[in-house]
């Protein structure tokens, strides 16, 4: 039963991932990314983490990718334009980073305890996630909030118009 849900979702996620890098249109890449994030939400459901699955849809699929699309539409990027800056040996560097990441993932996945322990009662509910965030991991949680605040302040500072008398647009 779990495999019947997991396999199609995983296949769709991989296909979407290929679509993100292979699509020539930035908007098509964003739609492919949306498919990846939605399929991941389904795999979270298989892992009995229904609250995380819904948050994945609301935050990543519902908010982050919308912002990506906003940027693409406002810049009005059409197909055929390559990236403005190309690093030297970009392909080699990308392959090396990807291989390193895959190795780290394999080590973590293969090194996990088997058979997997059964999920405790109430695992993955809103209560469990809330307790973990606000009791177990309070410091990282608050640090993340501070980092986001810094990001917002920086964006406002960079995005505001120069004061009158300065070099205006």
């Amino acid at each position: 039963m779990e495999w019947a849900v997991f396999l199609p979702a995983a296949a769709l996620a991989v296909a979407g991932g290929i679509g993100v890098v292979a699509a020539r249109q930035p908007v098509h890449s964003a739609i492919a990314l949306l498919i990846v994030l939605a399929s991941l939400a389904v795999t979270y459901l298989v892992l009995a983490a229904q609250f995380v699955a819904v948050l994945q849809v609301i935050i990543y699929a519902g908010a982050i990718v919308v912002l990506f699309l906003f940027v693409i539409m406002l810049l009005n990027v059409r197909s055929g334009e390559g990236p403005a800056v190309k690093l030297p040996r970009q392909a080699v560097a990308a392959a090396a980073v990807a291989a390193g990441y895959l190795a780290a993932l394999l080590v973590a996945a293969l090194g996990a305890a088997r058979p997997f322990p059964a999920v405790p009662q109430g695992f993955g509910t809103a209560q469990a996630v809330g307790a973990a965030l606000l009791a177990g991991y309070l410091l990282p949680f608050e640090l993340a909030a501070v980092i986001m605040l810094v990001g917002i302040v920086a964006a406002v500072l960079l995005g505001r118009r120069p004061p009158a008398g300065g070099e205006g647009r």
């Binding site: 229904q50 609250f51 699929a61």
Partner: peptide, 25 residues
Amino acid sequence: DVNVGILLVLGASSIGVYGIILGGW
């Protein structure tokens, strides 16, 4: 009757934005 019902409703409506944004583009 799922135990995250209301969040599912909000999630679906946040996906609904894509119809608007993609249709217009």
